[in-house]
Design a protein around this nucleic acid. Structure first.
Lengths: 196, 196
DNA sequence: CCATCTTTTCAGAAATTACTGAAATGACGG
DNA sequence: CCGTCATTTCAGTAATTTCTGAAAAGATGG
């Protein structure tokens, strides 16, 4: 590997980090390299930068494409494939969350729905099903929220995140303004509300 | 493995899922089992339920403890260790996010801060540093938001999530109420605002 | 202390995953 | 078509991770 030290630190770190996610070291390094690079890189560039085999790079790029994390480009008069990451870092976050949801949450929800249809035979199974229902409803709430905010323009999203829990203040204000005197504030019911 | 079918499906699924996270199959299965179980289980219970070796269970439990995902208990007159997961599923989510932040974001932020101190030698390095700064600021914003909402009571948090992007409506309302006529709404500046 | 029960450690085996080089496939331009 | 350049596939190997059994260490009651 022959890279400016500043870039090399980041690439190596991402390689290590990769293993804590579902991706391997090389894939992590390729991504890090593309993320930092100003210009699109072709497979041979990556081979030279990282010192891994051509075929390894090919497989790594294929995986990154399956994750929608890299974009394929072409240069006029050059028939090699060039790769980049999106310039907009928020787009990267959105993609990452989408893909993780697709790979981790969706299959789990599908299994949970299936198992929740079945009739429990024993009290043990009954309790297990209750737990699974809790998990299912939790995922439902979280993915519902995500689907919702994901549609916001980035500027609005940043605004929301910057506010953080100060949003609560505004909600309280809203409650104070619109609550029916003596009555409870209207709120959508969910099965995932706190237990105590 | 000798478990009610309903429980077995879930345990097996979690085992597979485990590999997509940083944890191995056995650890995933142990966790799933404890999550579904009404009563605390000891190591021998787990060995019998999953059909893996005693030492494997011991190591798995150690890892789950390192993640703060299981709680150690004792029964009077029994000196074996019993394990459970917290009853409150929201507590589980909080722990999970905390631990992943600690293992994935914090080390990266620390590396980014370090690298951002250095002086870039080339335009290439300069651009790389700009990218790293974007990533750093993004993490700063996200973790700031998380630290903030994490402190909310669960009921408030659920309320917030249920609202989803409808919060935006309330923000717009707030803007309309409090904006200085003819002027721009005051907003905290961040370096992570959208580029276009 | 000892006997017994429990958990932990760890070296080696087993299983899985990552990586490579060579060969196959594909994609032009002439 | 053919030659060249580029990418993909894949079988075999290397590296890593997971798992096990045996032994060690720890804890407790007598």
């Amino acid at each position: 590997m022959n890279l400016p030290p500043l870039i090399q630190s980041f690439v190596l770190h991402f390689g290590e980090m990769g293993s804590r996610w579902g991706i391997n070291r090389t894939v992590g390094q390729i991504y890090a390299l593309l993320f930092l690079s100003r210009d699109p890189l072709n497979a041979e560039d990556i081979v030279e930068a990282l010192g891994v085999s051509r075929s390894n790079v090919s497989m790594g790029l294929k995986e990154l494409q399956a994750w929608n994390l890299v974009r394929l480009q072409h240069k006029p008069g050059d028939r090699r494939d060039y790769f980049t990451t999106p310039d907009d870092i928020w787009q990267i976050v959105r993609t990452l969350v989408d893909e993780r949801k697709k790979r981790e949450i969706d299959p789990t929800q599908s299994l949970l729905r299936e198992v929740l249809m079945q009739k429990p035979g024993t009290p043990e199974e009954r309790h297990a099903q209750d737990r699974m229902r809790e998990m299912h409803d939790l995922f439902e709430l979280l993915t519902g929220w995500y689907d919702d905010v994901q549609r916001l323009e980035t500027e609005r999203l940043v605004q929301l995140l910057t506010l953080g829990s100060k949003v609560q203040k505004i909600l309280e204000m809203k409650d104070r303004l619109f609550v029916v005197p003596g009555g409870r504030t209207k709120r959508r019911d969910t099965k995932t509300s706190p237990e105590r």
